[in-house]
Each structure stands twice: as structure tokens, then as C-alpha cells.
Design a binder for these strands. Structure first.
Lengths: 229, 229
DNA sequence: CAGTGGTCTAGACCACTGA
DNA sequence: CAGTGGTCTAGACCACTGT
């Protein structure tokens, strides 16, 4: 019966939650714990490393490992493609391209995406439906200087989101959540009224230092984004 | 010059982002990669494990490792204590207890927290200020059956959030974000007007299967929650 | 300077699962 | 059944950082 890193992790976690090792407490070093548990130091190391990632303990060379005074709680959200999000709930997904235009970026966008004001951007407005009802409004801007092939792509059948993930497998992104008010136009698309509260996601994406796309997603009133942690 | 797991990870990541290993591609197995990179299998294993956690590849015994068709993107948010959040921006934090009451839970809360309707809950309404201006409104409910010592705790100087993290070092939680409208009361507290869009966080917390607390946090208009991923 | 965590290695056994 | 990832071990060297 060998001791696994999960065993060690669970035991240390228990010691913390039960207050045996209170916040701020210095935890025994890896060598000592390995002896106590009767396992290799690498096993203890993995357990402790994961607890540190989870924000429960704090590790510093020479100073040793301590139980965090205020554990860092972190919530993880999966950022799915809209279609998958809808379909995973067993609903039917429908997509529609509302408008498409090409031109120079407005000033606020040039500032936000760090674009030359002489550049060209593609702007797409799209709607995503779940079971026939409005679900999400998408206002998307794509930097054509960085991604010229977007100009000839067909966005009438598939959303830009899906096209982008296949064009750029991986990227850096900044995402932000906020609450805004629906104006008449947005309310029209989302099937509500002007003045409705709208849950809004904004996302900027970079790849190899170049700004690729900025998008603003607006959800129907009452939308919630939920996770456990 | 030994090869580190970071080197391996970076190289594999590069192969994916540059399309050398396109989505769906079967990646060589660990033994083979270890030979190619001239390092131990454990080193390759750690690199691949982290890439799998990041949602870029998918690993299955016997089936091998594949590049994910649609990478799972996940955003992490730190959920800080309000005071720390404010202070970390270099602003002065102030706390005020608005009201405190004890009684049976309303039906919606009993349902949400899975409480006996005969139970007792403590309700606190608090305000958090940054540099003297309203920052966050907190509507907090605590299950006194699970946490009787909350009834005698002093919440006039310190917020329930800080008291709770010391009383319960670790817990399961569900958090959800949404957009709501300020009513007259809330607008009064937050220094805005009725009808303002309000970014709202709701959080339920459990410990050892028992529901501990439910809270609803409302932020001043214009508040954003941002992260990189 | 010395103690602690960070990482690598070479080898081993095992658990899972696709064919 | 056999191939792949999952994990453990014992030992080693190193990087960082309090004292």
C-alpha cells in the first residue's frame, strides 16, 4: 500500500480545514513530511505544489511553507464557443450575420487595440439564438492588417468566433465582465426593452504581440454566468 | 545544459501555435519525445500534463495525446476580500455596517441554501468604500444553525467576509455574475440613480455539506471585472 | 552561508483502455 | 492483450533567499 500524492494532499488539506495547521502556521519541510508519510520527497512535493497552486499555502525557498492567512480563492470559468455552449444544454443553435463592413478603425478602437489609424478593420455584427430565442449579440472587430484572410472569409454561415479559433489555435486574451444598459437597437436584437440591464463581456485577443480582434458580447436580460470553485 | 520541463512545454506549445501539429493531430508518445528532447520521461510528462490542464491537448491512456480540436479556454478570476482589493489599488478602505437582524429565512433563501424554514439566519447589510466613495454593497445571510458563533460576533468594525474566512478556512462555493438594475434603495447606497445597471455577484458557500452563507454583492455603475488568460 | 523548495534522472510498476 | 499515460522512488544538483 503505497502513499500517493493524493493521499498526502488530502491529509494536508484536512489538517488545514480542521484547524490543526491554522493560518500562518509553518508547515514541516518536504523531507520531514516525506519521512512522516513514508513516501518519497517528490510525492510530497507534488501534493504541496498543487495546494500552492490552489492558493491554500505559500511556499518560499529557505523560508519554508506556510498556510496562507487569507487563502486566495480563484474561480475558473470556461470560455466556450457560443454554439457549443448552447448545444451542450441540449438547445438548438442558430446563427445570423446582421451586418458586415470594412474600414478604418474608430479612434477608441485604435487606442484599445493599439492600431494604426490608417489600418483596416473588419466589423461584424452577429446574433446567436438558442431554441429560436435571442441569446447573444456579438459586435466583433477584426484587425485586417494582422489577419488579411478574414476579409475573404465567409461569415454568413459560421460565426467569427469559430472561424478565429481555427485560424489562430492559441492566443493571449483579456476578458472583462460588466453590466450595461440596452439601448433601443440592442434591445431590439435581444428581444427586450431599452433600459434593460445587459450582462456584457468584452474580449481583446493578441497573437505574437499583434492585436487580432476585439469583441463585445451582450446577453439577454437575466443571463447568469456561474461556476463552482 | 539540461532540458527543463519548461523548455519542452514551450517547444510543444510552439509546434501547436505554429500549426506544425494541427488540431486533432496525434502527438508522439512520452518515451519518444523524451528521446527526441534528450531528457527523462518524467520531464516530458510534466510538460504535457500542464498543457493538458491548460486545455490545449487531450490525453488518454493507450489512445495517446492529441491536440484539442477546440482548445478549452478558461479564465481565472481571483476572488479577493474587498478590503484587500481596494487596498491593493492603493486606495483607502472604509467599512460600514448598515443593518443587522436575526430571524427565520425567507422562503427563497431557505430554498436556495437548503435550510429548514424553522431555522435562524443572521442578515447583514454592509457598505464598502474606496477613497471615501461607495464601492460595493453587500447583502449577507448567514446560517446560524451551522455557524452559531456568528450571532455574537461583532460586525460593526470588520466585514462578515473577513470574519468568515478566519472562521472557515476553506469551503466549497458557487459564484455567479449577472447584470441587474438598481432600485431606489440600492442607488442611494451606491451613489447613483434608480435604473442604473449594476454588476452583481452572488455567492453561496458550503462547508462539509452544510450551507453556511449566501451573499449578494452589488458594485457601483461602471464596475468591471477583468482578467487575462 | 546554510536551509528550503525546484527540478531532473533512470528505472520501475501499475491502471486504464483501444483494438 | 498490449500500448500509453499515471505515478512512485531514491538520489542528486541547483536556485533562491533568510539570517
Amino acid at each position: 500500500m503505497t502513499v500517493t500524492y493524493r493521499d498526502v494532499k488530502a491529509d494536508i488539506l484536512a489538517k488545514i480545514t480542521q484547524g490543526i495547521w491554522p493560518p500562518g502556521e509553518l508547515v514541516p519541510n518536504e523531507t520531514e513530511l516525506a519521512e512522516n508519510y513514508g513516501c518519497a520527497r517528490a510525492t510530497v512535493n507534488r501534493a504541496m505544489r498543487e495546494l500552492a497552486e490552489a492558493g491554500l499555502i505559500e511556499r518560499r525557498r529557505k523560508a519554508g511553507t506556510r498556510v496562507r492567512i487569507a487563502p486566495i480563492r480563484q474561480a475558473k470559468f470556461n470560455i466556450p464557443i457560443v454554439r457549443r455552449e448552447v448545444e451542450s444544454r441540449g438547445e438548438t443553435y442558430r446563427y445570423a450575420l446582421v451586418s458586415r463592413s470594412v474600414g478604418p478603425p474608430p479612434d477608441w478602437l485604435a487606442a484599445r487595440m493599439d492600431l494604426a489609424s490608417a489600418g483596416k478593420v473588419l466589423r461584424l455584427i452577429c446574433m446567436h439564438y438558442a431554441n429560436g430565442a435571442p441569446y447573444q449579440h456579438e459586435d466583433r472587430w477584426i484587425n485586417l492588417d494582422a489577419l488579411p484572410q478574414a476579409e475573404t472569409a465567409d461569415f454568413t454561415q459560421t460565426g467569427p468566433n469559430e472561424w478565429l479559433v481555427s485560424a489562430i489555435p492559441f492566443s493571449d486574451a483579456e476578458i472583462s465582465f460588466s453590466a450595461t444598459l440596452a439601448d433601443d437597437t440592442l434591445a431590439g436584437f435581444l428581444g427586450g426593452n431599452a433600459g434593460d440591464p445587459v450582462f456584457t463581456i468584452e474580449r481583446s485577443t493578441w497573437w505574437e504581440g499583434a492585436s487580432i480582434t476585439y469583441t463585445r458580447l451582450s446577453f439577454t436580460p437575466g443571463h447568469r454566468m456561474t461556476t463552482r470553485y
